[in-house]
């Protein structure tokens, strides 16, 4: 694997091949992060495209003080927040109980690549998890996804989202309590 620093420098000089290598290295990570955040494949693709467009535009300003992955995560969360603000993505929200607005996340549709013989229970569980995530506020969801799935330390999340570490903890705790409530039925069954 080529040295990332060297790739970044070449991309900063305008070498499209180097930029493409960086995109290939991170496109899945960014896409999956966007998917966890917005719960919808199409939106996740749009967000991840936007992330790399922004990365291309602002790469000359990237000084390498943070890891490239952290920088991309930060852009992803910002893009998600922007998209959320602009288009009011139709994900579930606890504060958004108006009729017609509670569409289940798109991931509840059968995954074309999924094994058709997979147990129905597993499919239900995936739906339940996505729905529970969709119930969190964008900030709670960002903090939860970054800590739980991306395994970033609380301090780093605080720096990334420009909020105090204490606020990250509070948001994360609130997110988990809300998930607990959402998953209560499932927990009672198991």
């Amino acid at each position: 694997m080529k040295d990332e620093k060297e790739l970044i420098e070449r991309a900063q000089r305008g070498e499209m091949g180097a930029f493409r290598e960086l995109v290939e290295r991170y496109q899945k990570t960014v896409y999956f992060l966007a998917l966890d955040l917005c719960g919808c494949r199409q939106d996740a693709e749009d967000i991840s495209q936007e992330v790399f467009l922004k990365a291309y535009r602002f790469l000359p300003n990237f000084r390498g003080e943070a890891r490239l992955s952290s920088w991309l995560y930060r852009i992803t969360v910002n893009c998600f927040m922007d998209t959320r603000r602009k288009t009011q993505l139709q994900t579930l929200s606890l504060h958004n109980d108006a009729p017609g607005e509670n569409h289940p996340p798109e991931l509840s549709l059968p995954d074309p690549g999924a094994d058709p013989s997979a147990p129905a229970r597993s499919h239900e569980l995936q739906q339940l998890i996505r729905r529970a995530l969709g119930r969190l506020s964008p900030r709670e969801r960002s903090v939860f996804v970054l800590r739980h799935y991306q395994e970033l330390p609380l301090k780093e999340i605080g720096e990334m989202l420009e909020i105090a570490e204490g606020t990250v903890k509070a948001l994360l705790f609130r997110a988990i309590k809300r998930l607990q409530k959402e998953l209560a039925i499932y927990q009672a069954e198991v």
Partner: peptide, 22 residues
């Protein structure tokens, strides 16, 4: 609760995901 959330699966991506994305 968090153990349940651990069971979240990411969908399998199509084989040409990378090329199409680029």
């Amino acid at each position: 609760t968090l153990r349940i959330m651990d069971q979240r699966e990411q969908p399998r991506l199509e084989s040409d995901f990378g090329d199409a994305f680029w």
